[in-house]
Design a protein around this nucleic acid. Structure first.
Ligand SMILES: [Zn+2]
Ligand SMILES: [Zn+2]
Ligand SMILES: [Zn+2]
Ligand SMILES: [Zn+2]
Lengths: 159, 159
DNA sequence: TGATTTATTGAAAATCATTATCACTATCAG
DNA sequence: CTGATAGTGATAATGATTTTCAATAAATCA
């Protein structure tokens, strides 16, 4: 119901390992959380996943993990700055690994087929930093998302 | 379930009146749809309203209108380019009037208290236009949204 | 204008992503 | 190793949005 995190936290995914990062905030390292992060690291290319997709993937590769745990782990990881929450589709959240480059990377979504293309644009993030500074906000995250219709769907619609 | 609009439409809110705009696409002018647009024009020129809030407002001013009708009208108006759908909070959609300036206007949201500040930045919209053109997409809409913690909530959290 | 067609409405039920509950288990600090 | 407690899985609950359907009203045209 409330948007997390409850208090501002650094957005960096530092060199320390997962256990250290978790314990520092009173969270524990569990095999389930490890599996989720491994999935993101293995699937680095097609890397926008919903809770349901993460669950499917893990179950498919033989893991025993409940959907509740996925949701809880996602919240923790967003709070710790390990994952980024994205508003790509209108009915669910997507997540991706939070790298040092994430803040310069934005999304172009086809509303017909759901295809997502990414692009880098440093100037946009700079605007976000500037706006938050002049207004005294603590910056947590910013997203630039373009909604449109991809070439494939355009021809599909014309026929 | 599906993201609208189903087919690309011009985003301009031209000079023609509501009835003409609706009929052109096979929709009908109803008193409910008029009331909703009037609400945006009278009370909410600079506000962002959710379906529930629109319903509350209209009922409060004595209108008889159901929440289903609000949702249906919002979809139609977004499809016609009269309203803009915003992802400000994580659990519901917000809407605002779509003016010629809307595309240059972006949002800074406090995740603690929900306060929204707006700012203009033409360069961001230009990036959107450029990206869609080079990739052959038809541009429907783009949003730059910054999530952070406002000064008030910062002091509140410190205490 | 009046009849015809069919989009729209209101009320209620359904959907579906996400969250909460709770008994049990596993992690971590000492 | 042990106690305190965070985390898990199964399932129920929540809540925004969508759908259903019979009744109503807007657009079209004779
Ligand atoms: Zn497409
Ligand atoms: Zn991405
Ligand atoms: Zn605030
Ligand atoms: Zn706005």
């Amino acid at each position: 119901m409330m948007i997390e995190p409850n208090q501002p936290l650094p957005r960096t995914n530092s060199g320390s390992d997962l256990k250290t990062v978790l314990n520092k905030e009173g969270f524990r390292l569990t095999s389930q959380r490890q599996k989720i992060l491994e999935l993101f690291r293995d699937i680095a290319l097609d890397h926008h996943l919903s809770a349901e997709e993460i669950h499917h993937q893990l179950v498919a590769q033989g893991e025993k993990i409940s959907i509740s745990t996925i949701y809880r782990a996602l919240h923790v990881m967003v709070r710790l700055g390990l994952l980024q929450e994205l508003e790509l589709a209108e009915d669910r959240k997507y997540y991706e690994l939070s790298t040092p480059f994430t803040s310069h990377h934005h999304h172009l979504v086809c509303v017909q087929c759901g295809a997502v293309q990414e692009f880098e644009e440093v100037s946009i993030s700079d605007v976000g930093v500037g706006e938050t500074q002049t207004r005294g906000f603590v910056l947590l995250n910013s997203q630039f998302t373009i909604y449109g219709v991809c070439p494939l769907c355009q021809s599909r619609l014309r026929s």
